[in-house]
Computed example of a mutant assay.
Amino acid sequence: MREVIATRYVTPLREGGSLPGLVEGDDLGTYIMKFTGAGQGRKTLVAEVICGELGRRLGLRVPELVRMQLDPVIGLSEPDQEVQALLKASGGLNLGMDYLPGSLGFDPLAFEVSAREAGRVVWFDALINNVDRSWRNPNLLVWHGELWLIDHGAAMIWHHNWPTAQKASARPYNASDHALATYGPDVAAAAEEFAPRITEDLLTEIAADVPDEWLDGEPGFDSPDELRGAYVRTLLDRARTVSEHITIGEPTKDRPSQAPEWLAGKLPRRAVK
Rank of each mutant, 00 (worst) to 15 (best):
K266M: 12
E112A: 15
A168I: 12
G265T: 11
L149K: 06
D201S: 15
G105F: 04
K273Y: 04
L202N: 08
L147M: 07
G37Y: 06
L147Y: 03
D201M: 12
I50Q: 00
I246C: 00
P101A: 04
D186Q: 13
D222E: 15
L140M: 08
Y9Q: 07
H245Y: 09
E112L: 15
D225L: 08
F194T: 12
Q84A: 12
I246E: 00
M97R: 15
I150H: 01
P138D: 01
L28V: 13
E226G: 11
G96N: 03
V272R: 02
I50K: 02
R120W: 05
G39H: 11
G229Y: 10
G102N: 03
P108N: 07
D71G: 08
M97V: 15
N94R: 08
D225E: 15
P260H: 07
R270E: 03
S223E: 04
L22I: 10
A188T: 13
S18V: 12
V4S: 01
G25R: 07
T30A: 03
G55M: 08
Y173P: 00
A155S: 15
P79A: 06
P63S: 04
G249F: 03
L141F: 04
R197D: 02
W158V: 12
A165S: 15
K266Q: 15
K88M: 11
G25H: 03
R238G: 03
G119E: 02
A154L: 14
V4P: 02
E64C: 06
A118W: 03
D27H: 10
V121T: 09
G220N: 07
Q40D: 15
A271S: 12
H160F: 14
A154D: 04
I32F: 01
Y231R: 11
R197P: 02
G52E: 01
E146D: 05
D27F: 07
Y31W: 15
L149A: 05
S243Q: 13
N129C: 09
A110K: 13
D254T: 09
L65M: 13
V122T: 12
G75F: 05
V4H: 05
C51A: 14
S243R: 10
G265Q: 11
A118V: 14
V113K: 08
P12I: 12
I128S: 00
A155R: 09
W214M: 12
T247M: 00
E24V: 07
E112M: 08
L60I: 13
W162F: 14
L28K: 14
I32D: 00
N137H: 06
V62R: 02
E244G: 01
A264Q: 09
E205W: 04
L127S: 01
R42E: 08
L28I: 13
R8T: 09
R120M: 10
L93G: 03
A118L: 10
I128Y: 00
L22E: 01
R8V: 09
H144Q: 14
N161F: 14
K34C: 05
A179N: 05
V142L: 02
E205D: 15
D151W: 02
R171N: 03
W143H: 15
E53L: 13
V232R: 06
W162C: 05
D225F: 11
I150C: 03
I32P: 00
G91L: 11
Y231N: 06
L267N: 01
L95G: 01
L202P: 06
E213N: 09
N129L: 15
L267S: 02
A165Q: 03
R42S: 06
